[in-house]
Amino acid sequence: MSSKRPSHPKPIPFIVTGAIVGFIVFGVVSLLGPTTDEGYNITYDPGTALGFMSVVGLCLGGLVGAVVAALFTYRK
């Protein structure tokens, strides 16, 4: 009998994929969302909104990718 250890997934591809997906999703949301806040009479620059939402998407997507990689590594 061979005592091969189960291979664990590498976390970096999961994190990078999650960050890219988050960047795309939050970028689309920022481009399709409203550019004004009616309650406070504020107008948002679409480029600024895209920048902020992209950073949030990168961070959240990377975090989700890291959690998925950790779950695959943890399974028995």
Rank of each mutant, 00 (worst) to 15 (best):
P46C: 11
V28L: 15
T73A: 07
P34I: 06
I12E: 05
S3N: 03
Y74C: 00
G61K: 13
G62F: 06
V21D: 03
R75E: 00
E38A: 14
G33S: 15
V16S: 02
M1G: 06
L32Y: 00
T43C: 02
D45I: 06
R5V: 15
F14A: 09
S2K: 05
A66N: 13
Y44Q: 07
V21E: 03
G18N: 12
Y44N: 08
P13A: 09
S54P: 09
V67Q: 14
P9S: 13
G33L: 00
G27K: 01
D37R: 14
G18L: 08
Y40W: 13
T36P: 01
K10P: 03
T48A: 08
V55Y: 01
G39L: 12
A70R: 15
T17C: 02
P11M: 02
V21H: 09
F52E: 09
G65P: 05
A49M: 13
P34R: 15
Y44R: 10
L60M: 09
I20H: 08
L50P: 12
D45L: 07
L58C: 06
K76N: 04
V68G: 02
P6V: 09
T36D: 01
Y40P: 00
T36Q: 07
V21G: 05
S2L: 13
G18A: 04
V55H: 01
Y44I: 07
S7G: 03
P46E: 09
Y40G: 10
V21K: 06
D37G: 07
M1A: 01
Y40R: 15
E38N: 07
L32E: 01
K76G: 14
N41Y: 12
P9W: 11
V64K: 15
G61Y: 11
V16I: 12
G57Q: 00
A69K: 08
M1L: 03
M53A: 14
I20L: 11
L58N: 03
V55G: 03
F23S: 04
G18P: 04
A19W: 10
A69N: 03
D37I: 10
G61E: 04
V55L: 05
T73F: 08
P9G: 11
K76W: 09
L58K: 02
P9T: 12
V25R: 06
G18E: 04
S7A: 06
T48Q: 14
Y74L: 11
T43S: 12
P34E: 13
T17Y: 13
G61M: 00
L71E: 00
I42Y: 15
A19Q: 02
T35H: 14
T48W: 11
S3E: 01
G62A: 14
I12W: 15
A19M: 11
L50S: 13
M53T: 08
G47K: 14
